[in-house]
Design a protein around this nucleic acid. Structure first.
Length: 694
DNA sequence: CCTCGTCTG
């Protein structure tokens, strides 16, 4: 091959990030404008995946499912859809789909492919993510989209008939949507022998992926279907372009991983040649603590550590601070990014040569008995550790420092993490399958089965919401309406009820706010100011009504970002609220809800909230001095979260929208109610319980 | 009397 890059010639551009992350080019990176078509073609041919072009096309032609194991930098995501198209799979108006778990990745990959093909985005090549559809019917032949969007598309077209090839990228991440999608695609395959699947996965997951798609144990059926199509999944491995990374383990188990991490960073800075450092910790607490320790070190010691630029990174960080991590360190300085898992998959940093891996991350766990989701610090898997390590070898050979022993890695660390679907509440997932006509939820063929307890709990909740009937079928119209709304079913139910309560305008706003992370900007140093700012909007009824006040004031300000800043309101979150609100309004109209404002009648609003969230009703314990509540459903001890406007107000009866558990169970987003509304909203749910409302 | 890993429709 003559396609090697020589120093002094044009710089090879990094292509897409194979871990589904998005590359952010620093200001110094060369722009693409200077490249002609020929040179673009050359670049494409230099990618490792190019060697496998014929093999991939052959496998896709002859196998129903092809599993591609692609290492970092192989070029699979951008190239394979193009190969498939060049081979004629889009002839006759058929479409190739390529899914990604994340929106940013969809956009990044689509624009790269558009550039390589020299076409306009939204024509031949397009993408669809929530709120953004850049595709043209009958024109778009290659379509990038999120897993979630493809799932939604199945509601209108369960067999996904317009697609000839579906590539599921980053399947090893095992997100809930990916897992549901894989289960459904396997089902579709039986009805559509013309459909081809390409599943891209990391090495470690490839075998279990193949096992899953090995449809039948009967050999005859397995070997071939009509037309000589092989049902046995093919596996193809494509090497990557990552550099070698030397791994260093702790010699002894580490008692305090934050401390160990900090010491390691300082040691690297003292002893190793230049190159940026990426540290993986678990959350804001860890990160702030270690950033502070590192800063102290920088200030007290006069010698080496002064050349360090220490930057935290987590999703809760304000946008401007997040962006700091992408600017290159000034000459002679070394950048240290202290990050959560966000840097493991979602964000790619250039210039990282050293990785420090604490060996932990925060993971969600769900207890179907208490119906509570918890976030806990837990050891990562080998797959995760490898991924973290790989982050060091993107620009040149790197080093990874693991804050655990080699023995621990080999003997105790699990190969793969627990798929998200086995750690989550399943209500949304169950309703989606029901809407697709899958009646036997317990018998569904999952890549990883959720626990029967979790399934049963989800069915119970949906039954009590009136979404499922006695035969566990979707009710009409409520069940079908709830399935149509892209929100948590409790929020959707609240929305539908608001149509009857005559307060849908208000509830749509509340639904939009509840479906995003938080509309407030909080920070450690500004706690008191923040509380004061919040008091300006505080409503006696509770947080939901407070949201309405914030939204109203935001509109009155002319949707001003300065106004947001002054009031500790997150401007980006409010833009998102506007966006979700518009979408919900459209859906509400489509499914025949009455759009109406209650003109300040907050009883109506509280009743509508109760209709969706009655299962989260709590009563203040009569003799409780510390604001202890008990849930009506399970007599769980819960407390109002200090961030709530009802903190220390403690009304007798409240409903919450979610629980956060730390040292205690805290209710977030709390509203006061009248207990008689509970019986009204869910007679079957509350009558079964022995005298709950005395 | 105190906080929240990351995503998605």
């Amino acid at each position: 091959m003559s396609g090697f890059w020589k120093p002094g010639t044009e710089k090879p551009r990094l292509v897409d990030d194979e871990e589904g992350g998005v590359l952010f080019f620093s200001a110094s990176a060369s722009s693409s404008s200077g490249y002609g078509y020929a040179s673009m073609e050359k670049q494409r041919q230099r990618l490792p995946v190019y060697k496998y072009r014929t093999a991939i096309l052959y496998l896709v032609e002859t196998h129903a499912t092809t599993i591609i194991v692609g290492e970092t930098g192989s070029g699979k995501t951008t190239q394979i859809p193009q190969y498939i198209k060049e081979a004629g799979w889009t002839d006759g108006g058929r479409v190739i789909a390529c899914t990604q778990p994340r929106r940013l990745a969809v956009q990044a990959v689509a624009s790269r492919v558009v550039e390589e093909m020299g076409v306009k985005l939204g024509e031949e090549v397009g993408y669809t993510i929530r709120f953004e559809d850049l595709t043209k019917p009958d024109v778009t032949a290659v379509k990038f989209l999120t897993d979630g969007v493809l799932l939604r598309e199945m509601m209108d077209d369960p067999l996904l008939t317009k697609y000839s090839v579906i590539m599921v990228d980053e399947a090893h991440e095992r997100s809930i949507s990916t897992d549901i999608l894989l289960g459904l695609l396997k089902k579709i395959q039986r009805r559509r022998p013309d459909l081809r699947l390409i599943i891209s996965s990391a090495t470690i997951e490839a075998k279990s992926m193949a096992d899953f798609f090995r449809t039948s144990k009967k050999r005859r059926e397995l070997k071939s279907m009509e037309g000589g199509l092989l049902m046995e999944p093919a596996i193809l491995s494509v090497e990557g372009r990552g550099f070698n990374v030397e791994i260093n383990y702790a010699e002894e188990p580490v008692p305090d991983y934050v401390q160990a991490t900090v010491s390691t960073v300082l040691l690297i800075h003292e002893q190793e040649p230049s190159g940026d450092i990426l540290v993986f910790l678990t959350g804001q607490d860890d990160i702030d603590a270690s950033v502070q320790l590192l800063n102290e070190e920088t200030q007290t010691s006069r010698k080496n550590s002064s050349g360090l630029i220490i930057l935290p990174l987590y999703s809760g960080l304000p946008r401007a601070e997040q962006e700091l991590v992408f600017s290159p360190a000034p000459r002679g300085k070394r950048k240290v990014v202290v990050s959560t898992n966000i840097a493991e998959t979602s964000i790619t940093l250039e210039g990282i040569v050293y990785v420090v891996d604490s060996g932990f991350s925060k993971q969600r766990f769900y207890n179907p008995i208490s119906d509570i989701e918890n976030l806990v610090v837990a050891p990562i898997s080998k797959a995760s550790a490898r991924q973290r390590t790989g982050r060091a070898g993107r620009v040149r050979p790197g080093k990874c420092y693991r804050m655990y022993t080699e023995e621990y890695y080999i003997k105790d660390m699990p190969d793969e993490g627990i798929p998200e679907i086995q750690r989550s509440n399943l209500v949304s997932c169950v309703i989606q399958l029901k809407a697709l006509g899958i009646d036997n939820i317990l018998g569904f063929d999952w890549p990883a089965s959720p626990s029967p307890e979790a399934m049963i709990r989800a069915l119970e909740v949906l039954y009590s919401l009136g979404v499922l009937d006695d035969d566990a079928k979707l009710t009409s119209p409520t069940g079908f309406q709830v399935a149509e709304i892209p929100l948590d079913p409790m929020i959707s139910k609240m929305l539908i009820a608001s149509s009857q309560c005559g307060c849908s305008e208000e509830i749509i706003t509340i639904a939009a706010v509840l479906s995003i992370q938080s509309i407030w900007i909080s920070g450690r140093g500004i706690q008191r100011e923040f509380d004061e700012a919040k008091l300006r909007f505080a409503a006696a009824e509770g947080d939901h009504v407070t949201f309405l006040n914030v939204y109203k004031a935001f509109l009155q300000s002319g949707k001003s970002s300065q106004w947001c800043h002054k009031n500790h309101v997150n401007y980006h979150a409010m833009r998102k609220v506007l966006e979700v609100r518009e979408q919900l309004k459209r859906i509400a109209q489509r499914i025949g809800l009455v759009l109406k404002s209650c003109e300040g009648d907050m009883r109506a609003v509280r009743k509508a909230v109760t209709s969706g969230f009655f299962a989260n009703a709590c009563r203040l314990e009569a003799y409780s001095n510390d604001g202890m509540y008990k849930t009506i459903r399970g007599s769980q001890e819960v407390y109002i979260h200090p961030s709530s406007v009802l903190f220390r107000v403690n009304p007798k009866w409240v409903i919450y929208s979610s629980l956060v558990s730390t040292d205690k169970q805290y209710m977030r987003n709390v509203i006061s109610i009248d207990p008689s509304w509970l019986l009204e909203a869910a007679p079957q749910f509350y009558q079964q319980r022995p005298n709950p409302l005395h």
